[in-house]
Write a protein that binds this DNA or RNA. Structure first.
Lengths: 144, 144
DNA sequence: GACGGTCGCAACGTTAATTGTTACGACAGC
DNA sequence: GCTGTCGTAACAATTAACGTTGCGACCGTC
């Protein structure tokens, strides 16, 4: 099991902000989102900070501070979010360099790298097909 | 970064055994493979044990013990290996349950689950297109 | 111009998963 | 029996992600 809930939490935060704004509010605070996601506000701020660097959200400071969307949910895809918050590849290489004196040890990493890159490319394409508006629609369509 | 080198190491081991057998040897020991992969023999035995449960390799005990392929490399795909050694999903949900009283907290997991399942299915298809014979060929084609 | 609420960020503690290591019994051929 | 290797359990080490605390920066309001 890998363990990256970063994409999940980021999508959660964006959907939350999007819904909150549709209800007429200007900005959402990290604490509100943290309560919904059942985690710590700092975790949310860290993630949203990466999304801001990617141009997906904006933040205001001072009184009445908080977060708002920088673009419509319709124009944001899970691919955008993935690129913003996922630091590394889906599949990892050996954690120590294999024996370069062995034919297999020498050639295995380039070989697997090639294969993995193709797969990641496919995953990115799949993620790009899903907008955050789709996500929010599915969220709201979930029966109680 | 996730961190699962399990698929990589398992492919390494299978390619190594396959090449070794093509050179006329009967069985490969976990220590030989561990040397090539620069890790501990027990790690290799654990992984190969899972591959044996999946019917990809066989092991012999006693003197002259070791591992051999149960099928041709041509009939083994990375999908078979993936199923055998990867315990969990590619993308994880929240580690704590989100607030079920919130609309987003309630609906986010089913929504993301759906999306993730589709993507994993695609990944499995991609993995199924690559045989271990392909991997070994690419390994041997790597320039020194 | 002080106040209060929220972000920004750094530092550190906590947790969970994987990997590495050691140990020892089981097995099978010599 | 002796030897070499697997099978497996137990535990240590490592790593990455996550959680927490603290405090300064910012800014509308009073």
């Amino acid at each position: 099991m890998s363990a990256n809930s970063r994409l999940t939490i980021a999508a959660h935060a964006l959907a939350w902000i999007g819904l909150y704004q549709r209800q007429g509010h200007e900005v959402a605070t990290s604490e509100q989102i943290a309560t919904s996601a059942n985690t710590n506000p700092v975790v949310i701020r860290r993630l949203l900070g990466e999304l801001r660097r990617a141009g997906l959200v904006e933040s205001r400071r001072g009184v009445g501070a908080g977060w708002s969307l920088a673009r419509e949910l319709e124009s944001m895809t899970l691919f955008d979010v993935y690129e913003a918050v996922e630091p590394g590849p889906l599949f990892a290489m050996h954690r120590t360099t294999p024996d370069q004196g062995c034919v297999v040890g020498h050639g295995i990493q380039p070989a697997m790298q090639n294969i993995y890159e193709g797969i990641e490319e496919t995953v990115r394409h799949e993620l790009a097909r899903v907008t955050l508006a789709h996500v929010l629609r599915d969220v709201l369509a979930t029966p109680r």
